[in-house]
Amino acid sequence: MTVPGAPSRPDAVEAVFPDSAEAAVRYVDLLATTGVEWGLIGPRESERLWERHVFNSAAVSDLVPPGVDVVDVGSGAGLPGIPLALRRPDLRVVLLEPLLRRATFLTQAVETLGLADRVEVVRGRAEDHRVTYDVVLSRALAPLPRLLGWCLPLAGRDGSVLALKGRSAQDEVEEQHRELVRQRLSAEVVSVRAYPEAEDATVVRVRRVPS
């Protein structure tokens, strides 16, 4: 199996995607070719697609309950929604993306990877979407206040928002502490890994505080 931009550990693809390694390789190939050509992925990112993007996205799997409905807000090139769907065949995933070129790429990717039976591409903005989900995902989408404004309305009453963030995640949560308390929300910063030797992925998990 040829692995575009091979990860630092050769067996990592099989470890992270035990039932869909070949599909994961095809996805990375799409990112490295069409994704770069269409401007969805920066040219300098093509050599680190696995570690920085795909494994980073797949790591969120540990925070998603079994068999739930998930929406990836501002999905872009399908990160984190497609890696999550490849790793977790029990999930139903909606890739929500407002821009035509990105939505077209996502539709092609879902069909190419054989995910159309449980992954749906919806072209639209989060603020116009009227469906709720068990888990709302985002990755490097916006600062926390704006992100929650878009994502919280999409989370069901017992749902959660999982925001993949950078190293400033804890600072963001602390800065928003009063507003989170006012809205009766709990927020915690969680570190997860796709496999033991992978880099940490930092996730802000936000849930409503029970009445």
Rank of each mutant, 00 (worst) to 15 (best):
V13G: 13
A15K: 12
R101L: 01
D200N: 10
G5F: 01
G35P: 10
S8F: 15
H53F: 07
L141T: 12
E45N: 11
R193S: 02
D158P: 05
S186C: 06
R178Q: 12
P43E: 04
L154D: 12
N56R: 02
V64G: 01
V119F: 08
V68Q: 11
P4N: 04
G76W: 08
L30K: 14
D72S: 08
L86T: 13
D90K: 13
A32K: 10
A23C: 06
W150E: 13
V204S: 02
P89L: 12
G156Y: 12
R125S: 10
V131S: 14
L79I: 15
L154A: 07
G39M: 09
S61G: 04
T107F: 12
L96N: 06
R87K: 14
R178M: 06
V135G: 13
L147R: 07
V73R: 12
I41V: 15
E120G: 05
D117S: 15
V173E: 09
V135T: 05
S20L: 10
I82E: 01
G114H: 11
R157C: 06
R52G: 07
R167Q: 04
P80E: 13
A58Q: 00
D128R: 10
L152P: 03
L63Q: 07
S160E: 15
P210M: 04
D200I: 02
D134V: 10
A6H: 11
M1E: 14
S46Y: 00
P145D: 05
G114C: 03
G156D: 10
G35A: 01
